[in-house]
Write a protein that binds this DNA or RNA. Structure first.
Lengths: 166, 166
DNA sequence: TCAAGATTGATGCAGCTGCATCAAGTGGGC
DNA sequence: GCCCACTTGATGCAGCTGCATCAATCTTGA
């Protein structure tokens, strides 16, 4: 065994795990109580509606959302089952397909967006000044394997819709 | 709909979700690769071995670990199946029972503890100075529903074993 | 004393995750 | 053209989670 973490590092680890799960839970509960589906659905709809054509390849979605391939596949199943998205054939590559957001999908995305924003404000925004939120971001970013971050966007328009990876 | 979160708050939310899952994943993978069971098992064993008698009521365990009742019940099932803990009858309250850690359980707890510490140091400690880790703690604590925190311990001995709630 | 309500722990069910694997299709080297 | 490696997406299986509910026991209060 190698080095041991300091008390501070251990405390940070514990907080990171506990607080995240508490905050996530609080937000998810708020949405669920309002009759909305899980956050992952929102994230997928957000990605799809961000696309100019309203459609994407599952591979693309997978990369954006940072979730495994099978997870994407099943998420799409559920969205399709609920009429929020549709699978379209992909003529360029017959292995693949396109997922297209439906009108119902766009509507849900919009409504959920409101509730989601409200929940974030309630459980995060209201507890931290903007300066502190920025500090928190900076510290958390240091923990990310900055390597595969890529993070090309986030620069301008509407702060890129919230999209946790789970 | 009420107030909207600031860009900073939204960014903090996204980071909190993404980085946590990334770091947790990294730590869990390290442990899994070393042949260890999930972290929740460690947490439970840690609670049990912290008890002077090596045994606890499930209700107690549940409160310490901040996981739902049924989850505790099944976690105990698995620990018992693997010979890491045993159920003992509780004479004072016939509804209840005691869960006792076994010798095998203590041994696993010890071995896992080493690997766990190493992983925390690798994925958290090594990326943050102690001062920054402390800052991070402070910021995260502000997000906790400080209400139900209780947090009576953590004061002295071995920094209380790490115990995320999931 | 005894009935109503609370507490403790277990469990059936549905849904989600991760893992391994599969079939279909593509593309590059020869 | 043909073969082999790779990519794309789906799926069977096992395990875990959350929800609802259950049986057993304890506690309270009339």
């Amino acid at each position: 065994m190698k080095r041991k973490p300091s008390l501070e590092a251990t405390a940070a680890w514990i907080r990171l795990m506990r607080i995240q799960s508490r905050v996530l839970d609080a937000v998810e509960q708020d949405l669920k109580r309002a009759g909305f589906p899980p956050l992952a659905w929102y994230d997928a709809l957000a990605e799809l509606s961000r696309s100019p054509t309203g459609e994407m390849r599952p591979v693309e979605l997978e990369k954006q959302m940072l979730i495994p391939q099978y997870s994407t596949s099943r998420l799409i199943d559920r969205l399709v089952d609920e009429g929020l998205a549709a699978r379209r054939e992909c003529k360029m590559d017959k292995r693949g397909l396109f997922v297209e957001i439906t009108a119902a999908g766009r509507e849900l995305h919009k409504k959920m967006g409101c509730a989601y924003s409200t929940a974030i404000e309630k459980h995060v925004g209201s507890k931290l000044s903007d300066a502190d939120a920025a500090k928190l971001c900076g510290l958390l970013d240091r923990l990310g394997c900055a390597c595969q971050e890529a993070a090309p966007t986030v620069t301008s328009p509407a702060a890129r819709d919230a999209a946790p990876a789970r």
